[in-house]
Computed example of a mutant assay.
Amino acid sequence: MRTSARIASVLTGLTLALGGVALTAPAAHADVTACINEVERELRGGEAPDSIRMACYVGLTGDHEQCVTGLTGSGVTNGTAVSACRVAPR
């Protein structure tokens, strides 16, 4: 394989890899934000404390039960916690 073809292949691979990261990163952030927004609706304008943000992050990893436990432990009603944790991993 010629050097110029090899360099072109490597650059194409890097472009595709970095483009994939750029496309998935905002989606992950939006999921945590959606979870936090569900809780903040219950707080009626109040900002979610760090304990709620952390519980939503746990929900992003797919641990639904731990997410609900973290949110209810922070004073969120069970119904809101379940719906917020449901939107986190999407």
Rank of each mutant, 00 (worst) to 15 (best):
M1A: 15
M1I: 14
R2V: 11
R2N: 15
A5F: 14
R6K: 13
R6M: 06
I7G: 01
I7N: 05
A8I: 07
S9E: 13
S9N: 13
V10M: 08
L11W: 08
G13A: 12
G13P: 05
L14R: 09
L14Q: 10
T15G: 13
L16H: 05
G19Y: 06
G19R: 04
G19Q: 04
G20Y: 08
V21N: 05
A22L: 12
L23K: 00
T24H: 11
A25I: 09
P26D: 01
P26Y: 00
P26A: 02
A28S: 14
H29R: 15
H29I: 12
A30M: 06
A30E: 07
D31C: 11
V32T: 07
V32M: 04
T33N: 12
A34H: 00
C35S: 06
C35P: 04
I36P: 00
I36L: 01
N37L: 11
E38P: 04
E38R: 09
E38W: 03
V39E: 01
E42P: 09
E42N: 11
R44T: 15
R44D: 15
E47S: 14
A48G: 02
P49S: 02
D50S: 15
D50R: 15
D50I: 15
I52V: 08
I52T: 01
M54P: 02
M54G: 03
C56D: 01
C56F: 01
L60D: 15
T61D: 08
G62T: 00
G62Q: 03
G62C: 06
G62S: 05
D63Q: 06
H64C: 06
H64G: 06
H64L: 13
E65H: 10
E65N: 11
E65I: 09
Q66Y: 06
Q66A: 13
V68W: 02
V68A: 04
T69K: 10
G70D: 03
G70P: 04
T72N: 06
S74F: 03
S74V: 07
S74P: 03
V76K: 00
T77V: 09
T77L: 08
G79M: 08
G79S: 08
T80F: 03
T80I: 09
T80E: 05
V82L: 11
S83H: 09
S83P: 04
A84W: 02
C85T: 01
C85E: 00
C85H: 00
R86T: 14
R86Y: 14
V87C: 06
A88I: 07
A88K: 08
P89K: 12
